[in-house]
Design a protein around this nucleic acid. Structure first.
Length: 588
RNA sequence: GCCCCCGUAGUUCAAGGGAUAGAAUGAGAGUUUCCUAAACUCUAGAUCCAGGUUCGAGUCCUGGCGGGGGUACCA
């Protein structure tokens, strides 16, 4: 039943008008009115040349006579509310119940999309900002898969540069050979030496008169910084000793990161390291210079003129020939499209503070003649603010990823023990449950917010477990499983005619929407749409569960139907949460 | 200075130009001999200000106020 097409026909039949598709507005009926679907008649008045009420009635009559599924209608102001037959909804439900992975695209679109997320520096542990980045990127990748894309999950690891040299220098000077241990993961250890460098560096500045705090690479003003740069130069020359140290310390960091990623439940298909790609970018820029796409200033630095595009000039290579951040990004992008010739789209999940950077990057790639630059997208997400404002490492307000997840586990444990259904759960499964619930709370908390918007995180008020939260949905899922365990399996069941209760119909309607929600989430790159949908379904199910008995229904057929409805609700919830990287427990 | 984004209940989030702006939390009142009360039901509470476009504006346009981000060889 394509209601919008039927409506177009209706208007031409009744009023002799040609209606374009966008003038036909069909939406869900708000729950305070009777009906399932609502037609907004205002745009059609120019054809009917009658009042909204009259037009609505005429259209309603037409639909009632010509569309068997439309049972009754009512008109409120300019809104035509249609009630669709129970038979229709039951048929939909029967059909859906047969499907294997309901809601997911049935065929592969043959589009390969690369999604980049996380992309950390190797001098600091992952923090709350990375968590949002990782969860978003991972979820968007899964949502695209559900929409029939081939997806390559990736990250660029910024493993090279002055930052890691600072950590290396500090470790050489004051490390006494310290190595990662059970108490201190590798990424934490390296991060501490980075901080230590900064501390000692500041100390040196304060002790030296008339030294500015400038970090300029070309003119180091402190002994420490100049030593760090010495290391960087040695690294670029592949000095054996420096290279070995660099490998060792980065190795520690990767081991630490792996633990964090694993805990978070995210993964990658393909890794890129800046140390492998940074020379690429430089080559490309020099070639662009030869072709006069870029230009050289008197001091020898290379620039791209973007004033015609309404932007400024952008530096690509410093006067000493060293590359800047964007240089390696140019190289990496090209390497990716060369490495995967089938690649159709590239999505960068990166914070909104880099909006300008990506605008420039895509312009430059286009100038270099890469048509695929149009298929590059910066999925820009808002930053996470603390009540005190931005996270600042200097002020020690950075929320560490490992600590936060550990905290969530602890809270989940405490709440689960307090609400005391733990006895029913085997002892060896409890810890897994705590992680499931704790991370469920955290992931849902972050993903339910529109990616584009910035969000607030208050570390003092721990993430909630009641209301619109991950655990609420997990709890509902567990409840459903409990019902299913108690129900006698009746696989032969097939409902024929049944008068649906309001609560039952509500659930079926929501379940019918699921494929459309996945589609929209894919088009908008928004896990939030999935999260909000899962919440709606959960609320509706709980309302149903509370007011209608499933296992004590009047007839066997009714029991079978309600069990099937519960089972399907559970399946959709599990599927939706799965797209967010949230697992569901059988009991909690 | 210039550019971009954002201002919705006390608080955190929703609302593809459409009906009486939804939730959650917090506040108040109720629900457990019944499938898991991490639940359910009810009450009070919001579109920063001023114009404009539209049959219709939280949503689009202009101006103001407030907040955030970027931009001067960091990543």
């Amino acid at each position: 039943m394509k209601l919008s097409v039927i409506l177009q026909n209706a208007v031409s039949a009744l009023y002799d008008g040609q209606v374009s598709a966008d003038m036909v507005q069909v939406q869900k009926t708000r729950k305070e009115f009777d009906g399932d679907l609502t037609v907004v008649v205002f745009p059609l008045l120019k054809f009917s040349k009658k009042s909204p009420e009259e037009t609505g009635k005429e259209l309603g009559n037409y639909l009632q006579q010509n569309v068997s599924e439309v049972v009754v209608f009512n008109v409120v102001k300019g809104f035509l509310n249609l009630t669709i037959s129970d038979e229709y909804w039951l048929n939909q439900f029967n059909e859906i119940s047969q499907k294997e992975s309901y809601g997911f695209a049935e065929k592969n679109l043959g589009i390969t999309t690369m999604v980049e997320y996380s992309s950390p520096n190797t001098n600091k542990p992952l923090h709350l900002g990375h968590i949002r980045n990782c969860l978003l990127g991972w979820s968007v990748a899964e949502i695209l898969k559900a929409n029939g894309h081939n997806v390559i999950k990736t990250q660029i690891i910024n493993d090279r540069g002055i930052h890691i040299c600072k950590s290396m220098l500090a470790w050489q000077k004051w490390g006494n050979g310290e190595e990662p241990s059970d108490e201190k993961k590798g990424d934490k250890l390296v991060g501490e030496y980075y901080v230590e460098f900064d501390r000692k560096h500041k100390l040196e500045i304060s002790q030296t008169a008339s030294v500015s705090e400038t970090d300029a690479v070309s003119k180091p003003r402190t002994q420490l910084l100049s030593e760090a740069q010495q290391l960087l130069r040695k690294w670029e020359a592949k000095d054996t000793e420096v290279y070995a140290l660099w490998k060792k310390m980065n190795g520690w960091v990767y081991e630490g990161f792996d633990v964090t990623y694993k805990r978070m439940g995210i993964d990658f298909d393909q890794l890129y390291y800046e140390s492998d790609t940074y020379l690429n970018g430089k080559e490309i820029v020099l070639k662009g210079l030869e072709k006069d796409i870029f230009f050289k200033k008197d001091d020898g630095s290379v620039w791209c003129d973007l004033t015609k595009e309404g932007l400024d000039e952008k530096l690509l290579l410093r006067a000493d020939g060293t590359s800047v951040y964007i240089t390696q990004d140019i190289g990496t992008a090209i390497k990716r499209f060369e490495g995967f010739p089938e690649l159709a789209k590239q999505i960068y999940v990166v914070g909104s503070e880099q909006n300008y950077h990506f605008k420039v990057l895509f312009f430059i790639l286009k100038k270099l003649g890469y048509e695929w630059a149009d298929e590059c997208l910066h999925l820009s997400y808002g930053m996470i603010d603390l009540p005190s404002g931005k996270m600042k490492s200097r002020e020690g307000t950075v929320v560490d990823a490992d600590d936060l997840m550990q905290e969530m586990h602890k809270t989940a444990k405490a709440i689960t023990e307090e609400l005391s259904k733990v006895e029913e759960i085997p002892e060896n499964e409890r810890d897994e449950l705590y992680w499931m619930v704790g991370l469920g709370a955290l992931k849902y908390f972050i993903l339910k917010v529109d990616p584009k918007k910035k969000m607030l995180f208050d570390p003092k008020e721990s993430v909630d477990f009641h209301g619109n939260t991950g655990p609420f949905i997990q709890y509902t899922y567990a409840r459903i499983q409990s019902v299913l365990r108690k129900a006698e399996k009746n696989s032969e069941f097939r409902i024929q005619d049944l008068e649906l209760k309001r609560e039952e119909k509500e659930i079926i309607k929501l379940i019918c929407e699921y494929p459309q929600i996945i589609k929209e989430a894919g088009e908008n790159y928004s896990p939030a749409l999935i999260a909000n949908y899962a919440y709606e379904l959960t609320k509706s199910f709980n309302h149903f569960y509370q007011s209608i008995s499933i296992l004590a229904a009047e007839t066997d057929e009714l029991i079978a139907f309600r069990v099937a409805l519960s089972e399907m609700s559970g399946k959709v919830l599990k599927s939706a949460l799965g797209l967010l990287g949230i697992e569901v427990p059988e009991r909690m």
